[in-house]
Design a protein around this nucleic acid. Structure first.
Length: 565
RNA sequence: GAGCCUGUAGCUCAGCUGGAUAGAGCAACGGCCUUCUAAGCCGUUUGCCGGGGGUUCAAAUCCCUUCAGGCUCGCCA
């Protein structure tokens, strides 16, 4: 039920439209004030009346014929306060959640619209490390939020599978690599020889030239070079797939850099045809000084394409292939300028869809002792973090629930959940210093806290057994703690919408924390499995609704719901 | 030098499309398991919302300015 709209209908003020009044109505700041408030200060000047007088008069006229969903209307210090009939509101809210079930929160707003989401975008033959966690889980969460809201979604892993590093890797492999070792150790063996190459390159510059030659061979589709390239790629993918699976992350497309290799020429031709390319220091650029930006480099002085060239080709390909209504790039904020430039170039080329491309920037992860560097071998593998989190979780389970079944799989769900949660709890723009202490803390606002609350709900629902026919006593879910839970339950659909609007999965995470806290508070103050059957019926329904919304939120974030822990 | 981002409790952060006394978690201390999961709950303590101006009935929130930190700024991606 849309209370704001209903409330706005009750209010008539000269010169202010219904919609305007509705937009001014806010949730009440405090329980004592009721459920919704309308600050009347802004009407004061136009109506030539004191805010308090306006509020009082409105309160009086609405009280005269109080609609049945309202309990009371009052005026305090210039605010018009509305108090809902909480029993009724609780009943309506619980009915809605439980009737809709897993579909609660869904909407048709995205019907017929397509959203492409570019996330994770790992590099082949490089470690899948803690720095990739953000883009991977933020992108996956945005993917699911859009899906929930009815959008047609395309998840794209724009693989870093092109560039001179593959030449380097071939040289390194030929010198020190061994196929069986790599097949056995996978990615780490590849990274090892890559790191070694960079060390030796410093003293033997000839290696660099050799690497460049091998890279050219890849481009020219030399069979040996291609075979090795695919070997590296397969080795990497085989391994990262495991991590994606643990994180519950999927993609619809793996079209990466190499995929666009033959798709750049048309872009260059179009730029030329539209007179956007100028030559500067031998390189071809799009001049953007008029827009307060440095030039966008399209072709190197040796004629080779660049990052922006590839991203332009990518943008056109995606537009032509998916005809997206929106294309999100979940990429670190270091690339703010790059995307601003690319989007501007698309605009200058005269394509309207430039405004549908959005750079969803996120903060960077560093280590306590500085930045991560693959070449220096100074990084933390994501799979190690997941393993440690699982280990920690397993230790806690052994201690607290020694008799539990499926300890291993619960530990996996809880450990991985804790890691995902940590990447989705803060606003995405925040930088993050990685530490095991932080990520392995399972107390307070954490993934395990959410999962624990879910398991608690489940346990109660299990004990409650089959739903009784007794009519629920709604007064038992209209008390302070219970009603706080009810209110939060009604907010879930709006939380999803605003999370989508702001491209902020953290809105969902925060919301789930609020919901869990509110429920736990309720749990300690009220007995769900009460002797009174109608009280019990109402509170079990509340518990079921919380369980359901928690699970729905978990699915958005990629956290697994465990029934027991 | 320019552009963008960040600055809120000892620490990590919510709140920022302006609204009523600025909120959580961690850490610290104290309490609560013979009743539904103590990975939990309750209580105590903590704030020049970086500083200064301005707009407004009302500013952590908007504008200007300033300081501190981060990122980026032509042939890497």
């Amino acid at each position: 039920m849309d209370y704001k709209k209903q409330l706005a209908k009750l209010i008539a003020l000269d010169g202010f439209s219904q919609g305007e009044i509705e937009s001014y109505i806010t949730p009440a700041a405090e329980v004592a004030f009721g459920d919704f408030s309308l600050p009347c200060f802004r009407f004061s000047k136009a109506l030539k009346k004191a805010p308090n007088a306006i509020a009082s008069e409105l309160a009086a006229s609405i009280s005269a014929k109080l609609p049945d969903f309202l309990k009371a209307v009052g005026a305090v210090g210039g605010y018009l306060n509305f108090t809902l009939d909480r029993e009724r509101a609780a009943g309506v809210a619980l009915d809605e959640v439980l009737t809709k079930g897993a579909a609660y929160g869904e909407s048709g707003e995205g019907k017929g619209k397509t959203v492409c989401i570019d996330y994770s975008s790992i590099n082949i033959a490089k470690p899948f490390h803690i720095g990739h966690l953000g883009t991977t889980v933020i992108g996956a969460a945005l993917y699911r939020i859009h899906k929930k809201l009815g959008y047609n979604t395309v998840g794209i892993n724009h693989l870093g599978d092109f560039g001179t590093q593959f030449g380097k890797l071939i040289v390194a492999y030929k010198l020190w690599g061994d196929k069986r070792g790599i097949e056995a150790d996978g990615l780490r063996a590849l990274v090892d020889i890559y790191v070694r190459f960079h060390k030796e390159e410093e003293t033997s510059p000839a290696l660099t030239d050799e690497a460049r030659e091998w890279f050219l061979k890849i481009e020219k589709k030399d069979p040996e070079a291609l075979e090795l390239f695919h070997f590296f790629k397969d080795t990497t993918m085989k391994e990262v797939e495991k991590t994606y699976e643990r994180l519950g992350v999927t993609f619809d497309s793996y079209a990466g850099e190499s995929f666009y290799n033959d798709k750049m020429q048309p872009v260059i031709d179009e730029l030329k045809a539209k007179n956007l390319l100028t030559v500067s220091d031998g390189a071809s650029i799009v001049d953007l000084t008029e827009y307060g930006m440095p030039p966008c480099l399209i072709l190197r002085s040796d004629g080779a394409s660049l990052y922006a060239t590839r991203d332009l080709a990518t943008a056109f390909y995606r537009k032509n292939t998916y005809n997206f209504d929106k294309c999100l790039y979940v990429v670190a904020y270091q690339q703010n300028l790059h995307f601003k430039q690319v989007f501007k170039v698309v605009e200058l080329m005269g394509h309207d869809f430039y405004k549908d491309m959005i750079h969803v920037a996120y903060g960077m992860v560093s280590l306590e002792d500085g930045a991560m560097s693959t070449r220096k071998g100074n990084m933390v593998y994501l799979s190690d973090v997941l393993d440690k989190a699982k280990e920690k979780s397993l230790a806690i389970i052994r201690e607290k629930s020694p008799d539990i079944k499926d300890a291993e799989s619960i530990a996996e769900a809880v450990g991985v959940g804790a890691v995902i949660f940590s990447a989705l709890v803060n606003n995405r723009i925040k930088d993050n210093v990685f530490s095991y202490d932080k990520i392995l803390n399972f107390d307070g606002e954490t993934g395990p806290y959410l999962q624990y609350t879910y398991a608690r709900c489940n346990s109660i629902v299990e004990k409650a057994g089959i739903e009784s026919k007794t009519a629920p006593d709604l007064s038992s879910v209209a008390g302070e703690e219970a009603y706080a839970v009810v209110k939060l339950l009604t907010e879930y659909p709006e939380v999803l919408r605003s999370a989508k609007e702001a491209y902020e999965p953290s809105f969902v995470t925060r919301y789930l924390i609020d919901l869990a806290q509110a429920y736990n508070k309720f749990y300690f103050e009220n007995r769900v499995l009460d002797e009174n059957a109608s009280v019990r019926a109402a509170r079990v329904r509340l518990t079921k609704a919380v369980k359901l919304v928690l699970k729905s939120g978990f699915e958005i974030l990629g956290i697994q719901a465990v029934e027991h822990m």
